[in-house]
Simulated assay, not measured.
Amino acid sequence: MNFIAEAGFTSYPILLCAALTLGLAVRAFLRPSDTATDPGTIAGIDAVLFWGVFGAVVGLLGTLGGVAQAAAAIEAAGSVSPSLAWGGLRVALHPLLMGLLLLSVSLLLWFALRARRGAQLRPASAD
């Protein structure tokens, strides 16, 4: 929880993207197998990847904003100890880590759902 709190205001949109990603993945997984070719099912599977990428972009923007704030604070303070400067940069990287973690999970879910859909489309063997 402390990690999420340190990520700042961008953690909330990233968590929303994570909830959307998970909800869409569960919805696509629970759909009946006869809807595998349905465009809505395919769009839902692709939306899993979209929200993961969107969360990563929000994390990158949050990190850039955090680095800019840290740089401004260091500039205003003048002489700052290296540990304090690196501590500010460490905190600024939290949104990016959250976004990349979300992207990794969404990529795995997207790949698994696409593979599952592809397996349902393969014809049965004639043996």
Score class of each variant (00 low, 15 high):
residue 1 M to D: 05
residue 1 M to Q: 04
residue 3 F to M: 11
residue 3 F to N: 05
residue 4 I to D: 00
residue 5 A to R: 15
residue 5 A to H: 11
residue 5 A to Q: 14
residue 6 E to H: 13
residue 9 F to I: 15
residue 11 S to R: 03
residue 12 Y to S: 02
residue 12 Y to V: 09
residue 13 P to V: 05
residue 14 I to P: 00
residue 15 L to F: 08
residue 15 L to K: 06
residue 15 L to I: 15
residue 17 C to Y: 04
residue 17 C to L: 07
residue 17 C to H: 06
residue 18 A to C: 07
residue 18 A to D: 02
residue 19 A to N: 04
residue 19 A to I: 14
residue 24 L to N: 05
residue 24 L to W: 03
residue 25 A to Y: 01
residue 26 V to A: 06
residue 26 V to T: 05
residue 28 A to G: 06
residue 29 F to A: 13
residue 30 L to F: 10
residue 31 R to Q: 12
residue 32 P to Y: 07
residue 36 A to S: 14
residue 36 A to I: 05
residue 37 T to K: 15
residue 37 T to C: 12
residue 42 I to F: 12
residue 45 I to W: 09
residue 50 F to R: 11
residue 51 W to H: 05
residue 52 G to K: 00
residue 54 F to N: 04
residue 56 A to D: 07
residue 57 V to S: 03
residue 63 T to K: 02
residue 63 T to D: 00
residue 64 L to H: 11
residue 65 G to E: 09
residue 65 G to A: 14
residue 65 G to S: 12
residue 66 G to K: 00
residue 67 V to S: 11
residue 68 A to Y: 07
residue 69 Q to K: 10
residue 69 Q to M: 12
residue 71 A to R: 10
residue 71 A to H: 09
residue 73 A to M: 14
residue 74 I to D: 00
residue 75 E to K: 13
residue 76 A to E: 10
residue 76 A to D: 10
residue 77 A to C: 03
residue 79 S to D: 09
residue 81 S to V: 02
residue 84 L to C: 05
residue 85 A to L: 04
residue 87 G to Y: 02
residue 88 G to N: 01
residue 88 G to D: 02
residue 89 L to P: 00
residue 92 A to S: 01
residue 96 L to S: 09
residue 97 L to T: 08
residue 101 L to P: 05
residue 101 L to I: 13
residue 101 L to G: 15
residue 102 L to A: 03
residue 105 V to D: 04
residue 106 S to Q: 03
residue 108 L to I: 07
residue 108 L to W: 03
residue 108 L to M: 06
residue 109 L to A: 07
residue 110 W to S: 01
residue 111 F to P: 02
residue 111 F to C: 10
residue 112 A to F: 08
residue 113 L to T: 02
residue 114 R to V: 13
residue 115 A to Y: 11
residue 116 R to L: 07
residue 117 R to F: 04
residue 117 R to Q: 15
residue 118 G to D: 14
residue 119 A to L: 14
residue 120 Q to I: 09
residue 123 P to S: 11
residue 123 P to I: 15
residue 123 P to Q: 12
residue 124 A to K: 10
residue 125 S to N: 06
residue 126 A to E: 13
residue 126 A to S: 11
